[in-house]
Nucleic acid binder design. Structure first.
Length: 591
RNA sequence: GGUCGCGUAGCUCAGCUGGAUAGAGCAUCUGCCUUCUAAGCAGACGGUCGAAGGUUCGAAUCCUUCCGCGAUCACCA
């Protein structure tokens, strides 16, 4: 039981004993640094039940607590704030209780109810960029956080492997590629295919211009450009199963998948189950037809099928085209149902998709509810803000993107430069160094993105790049490395570990912060927010560095105290590692 | 135009279900490496929390209106 739960009961008991009144709740907050105390009881809300002067009431409750509760060592009252001092023993007991616990803070008995987290879900016509990185990091991290909070989690993605966008790359490759392959060009598969996506756009634009110069109206030119019409024809051939087209599609998608795999591996993300749109794009149609019979949907005169959501404050939305083919929404209905069929233990789905699709997911969830699926109550759109550049939105076809692979490589190179300047890596082999640069570079990038509230849009300035000092990944990794350095030099003697040492204020602060880890994980899981983990870790690390600076660990003459500090440092290291694992960030032994 | 989101220090961000004098980092300026890693620590400077009303003992936080930025409202995905 943490101190807040203990005190809540005791405060209620105090009020009951002093005033014969039952309080429904007690409000707490951490005591501000400028006052003495560890936890603060806010008296104001009690005034609704207990009439009187807040300072007097606070003092009376404080006196009661000090007399009756062994953990309470003292108190003071400022205005309506009762600051309670908790004795060292409480924190020491807490520390001993978690000393040997592995993965402290993680929930160990995993619920049989599962959650499926979808993330990444790229189109297969171009390489991944910074926007995808945010998506991947968020999805992966939220998955890990949900696991640590006690859920079974399946990570998945839906690969958008069909459609006009892919035909554009295919067509451009046919026209301008001269048989180029990843092997012949030395290009990564996704980059090669992306190159032809850009090539298509260039040709398309110049054809439009030609038409316009020839006197054609601009809008019409955009529809009639020959290369676009060719692409549309190619899509029709693909849908009719034309062998040559399908073969080319398979070949080029294969290149892209190998490229994606490399990037995913680089980023350190993975998936338990993949879904391909080409496999599932027909599935939703049956459901829609069935829903039509049950009156969930209605048919318009031209044969198209719709749902009326005006009762929910939304509009009518199409779910099937007049020619009977599936739209985006149809596929998503089918995919959701397919997933629950494949994994019957799923009680919820988390969709990691940008906030430009907020409306789409509101509609999707409503439709699934109206179709009567009980799990539809548990759907969550993890909506995140776009990553924009100072020049504006990233657009693959115009080449204005920060490429994922390039960015990762840049980060590693920056880490290498800084490491070399600092020159602390004597004795490391080239291989070890390389691995370390990766750890640090990726750590900087991942932390930079994950520490921001997912809802907020990120403005990424490549010129200024990502910091390595202050509230950053490397700062936290550095602290971890420092701790490991101490542990390498320390002799462990748990027998000498004192159970009744007097705590230094910094030690107490550290223990308080460690104690917050389990609830922080729960909070992060409820809010689907890795940012809460990042900020927690930062606070812990700041606290440790301050401790490290003020208090000598290995130089402490009292063996009992020294052992305590060594063990405390070790625990802080473990929590840093556990927390960073939730963010998908590695920690180094040295740096 | 309707709907949704965002607006906190020069910049990037915290601020939990309303609570004490709104916190960090970067940048600028001071100190601290003969002692456990200075990617660090300690400090200074920097704020009409977009604006105005309202609710409350108490508002950055809740409500209303307005302003700014973004997204979205397709038989595209």
């Amino acid at each position: 039981m943490n101190i807040q739960e203990v005190l809540a009961q005791q405060v209620k008991a105090a009020v009951s004993s002093l005033y014969q009144i039952e309080l429904p709740t007690v409000e707490f907050q951490p005591t501000r640094k400028e006052f003495e105390g560890d936890i603060t009881v806010v008296v104001f809300p009690m005034l609704r039940f207990v009439k009187g002067n807040p300072v007097e009431i606070g003092t009376q409750i404080g006196t009661y607590l000090q007399e009756q509760v062994q953990e309470v060592a003292g108190f003071n009252v400022v205005k309506g704030f009762l600051n309670v001092v908790i004795n060292d023993q409480f924190y020491l007991d807490f520390f001993h209780s978690i000393l040997d616990e592995k993965d402290f803070g993680y929930v160990k008995d995993i619920s049989s109810d599962a959650v499926m987290v979808e993330y990444s879900s790229p189109n297969t016509n171009k390489p991944l960029h910074l926007g995808h990185i945010r998506n991947n990091l968020l999805g992966y991290s939220v998955s890990e956080i949900l696991k640590a909070s006690g859920k079974t989690v399946y990570k998945t993605q839906i690969i958008n492997d069909r459609g006009i966008h892919i035909c554009k790359s295919m067509l451009a490759w046919q026209k301008f590629g001269e048989g180029e392959t990843p092997e012949s060009s030395g290009l990564k598969g996704d980059h090669l295919v992306g190159k032809y996506y850009v090539a298509f756009d260039k040709a398309y634009k110049s054809q439009i211009q030609e038409l316009v110069n020839g006197g054609v109206d601009k809008e019409q030119a955009a529809k009639e450009a020959p290369i676009l019409m060719e692409a549309q024809a190619m899509l029709r051939k693909w849908e009719s199963g034309d062998e040559a087209t399908v073969a080319l599609w398979k070949t080029m998608n294969g290149w892209v998948y190998r490229g994606f795999d490399a990037t995913y591996k680089n980023l350190g993300v993975d998936f338990d189950k993949l879904y391909y749109e080409s496999d599932t794009y027909l599935l939703g149609r049956d459901v829609v037809k069935e829903g039509l019979e049950r009156g969930v949907f209605f048919r318009k005169e031209d044969g198209s099928v719709w749902i009326d959501l005006s009762d929910e404050g939304l509009d009518e939305k199409i779910v099937l085209r007049s020619d009977g083919t599936a739209v985006y929404m149809t596929q998503d209905i089918g995919t959701a149902i397919q997933r629950v069929t494949d994994f019957p233990d799923i009680k919820g789905l988390v969709y990691t998709v940008g906030n430009e699709q907020d409306y789409h997911f509101r509609v999707l969830f409503l439709i699934l509810q109206k179709l009567g699926y009980d799990w539809a109550q548990q759907l969550y759109h993890l909506s995140y803000g776009m990553v924009d550049l100072p020049s504006g939105k990233m657009k693959s076809r115009e080449g204005t993107v920060v490429d994922a692979d390039d960015l990762i490589q840049n980060m590693e190179e920056t880490a290498e430069e800084i490491s070399k300047e600092l020159g602390k890596l004597d004795g490391y082999s080239e291989e070890e160094k390389k691995k370390l640069y990766r750890t640090i570079g990726l750590g900087a990038l991942k932390y930079y993105i994950l520490k921001v509230d997912p809802k907020k849009r990120i403005l990424f300035n490549p010129e200024e790049s990502v910091d390595f000092q202050g509230n950053t990944g490397p700062f936290i990794q550095y602290t971890y490395a420092r701790i490991q350095s101490i542990l390498r030099k320390a002799n462990f003697d748990t027998g000498a570990l004192g159970k009744d040492v007097t705590l230094h204020p910094k030690e107490k602060e550290l223990l308080k912060q460690i104690q917050l880890f389990p609830e922080t994980i729960q909070l992060a899981a409820e809010n689907h927010s890795p940012a809460l983990i990042a900020n927690y870790t930062y606070d812990l690390v700041k606290e440790f560095n301050s401790f490290y600076q003020q208090v000598s660990i290995l130089g402490e003459p009292d063996e009992s105290k020294k052992q305590f500090r060594v063990q405390l440092s070790k625990k802080v290291g473990e929590v840093i590692q556990s927390a960073f694992r939730l963010l998908g960030i590695d920690v180094p032994e040295r740096m």
